[in-house]
């Protein structure tokens, strides 16, 4: 199926996938802008390793939804398993329901929006980008993150190692609300903002002998 999708994507076609059967690796490796409408639930790594496509999924998704996307957009109507939007470098992922553990782990850019709640270690080792969670997040949110921002409207299970709360500016709030509006979310919740405390950025890397020489 992926070979057929790649052929159609390279032609810039609009494609509808029916009865996906929750198969793993649905719509993988698509590197051309196109529109793909998947009508049903999908398994692990759906719409992953892609650059450019707009994918809508009417159902649930397994682990690694959109993994390492470079650009494009994924709109999932229901719940996502663990590691949604992991390592994405650009584009946007919208989860209409809840997301599992490690949502947005190692993100390097782009935006993840979770309409519901997200699990533990959300934003773990996140490097860049934005995570917006309209519900609650679990334990250790933002653990060991480098840069990037996590916005949470609901309760926070706990902050991860070196994650800290920071004030949200009015401009930021307007920006987040604008993003939500683009996905048809009309509520305007107030968000807490989580960023890196930057206490883990540096070790003293040189020893005595090296210091004397360098």
């Amino acid at each position: 199926m992926n070979r057929r999708l790649k052929d159609l994507a390279s032609e810039g076609a609009d494609v509808t996938v029916v009865n996906p059967g929750a198969r793993h690796n649905t719509a993988v490796g698509l590197l051309h802008p196109c529109k793909i409408d998947i009508r049903g639930s999908v398994g692990y790594y759906s719409a992953s390793l892609m650059d450019g496509p707009e994918v809508t999924i009417d159902g649930n998704a397994g682990w690694g939804l959109g993994e390492n996307m470079m650009s494009g957009r994924i709109v999932l109507s229901r719940d996502a398993g663990a590691s949604a939007a992991s390592t994405i470098r650009g584009g946007e992922v919208f989860v209409g329901g809840n997301a599992g553990a490690r949502a947005g782990i190692s993100m390097k850019g782009g935006t993840l929006v979770v309409r519901g709640s997200a699990g533990f270690l959300t934003g773990f080792m996140m490097q860049k980008g934005r995570i917006i969670v309209c519900g609650d997040v679990g334990e250790a949110v933002g653990d060991s993150m480098y840069e990037g921002v996590i916005y949470v409207a609901g309760s926070i299970g706990s902050l991860g190692n070196d994650a800290v709360l920071e004030d949200v500016s009015e401009d930021e709030l307007l920006d987040v609300w604008g993003t939500l509006e683009s996905y048809g979310v009309e509520e305007r919740p107030v968000f807490a903002k989580i960023v890196s405390g930057r206490r883990l950025y540096h070790l003293d890397s040189l020893e005595r002998l090296e210091k004397s020489a360098i």
């Binding site: 070979r3 793993h24 690796n25 398994g43 993994e67």
Partner: peptide, 12 residues
């Protein structure tokens, strides 16, 4: 196993 299949699918 699923990750390996993903990489295979991405590279045909």
């Amino acid at each position: 196993a699923i990750k390996i299949e993903q990489l295979r699918e991405a590279t045909d």
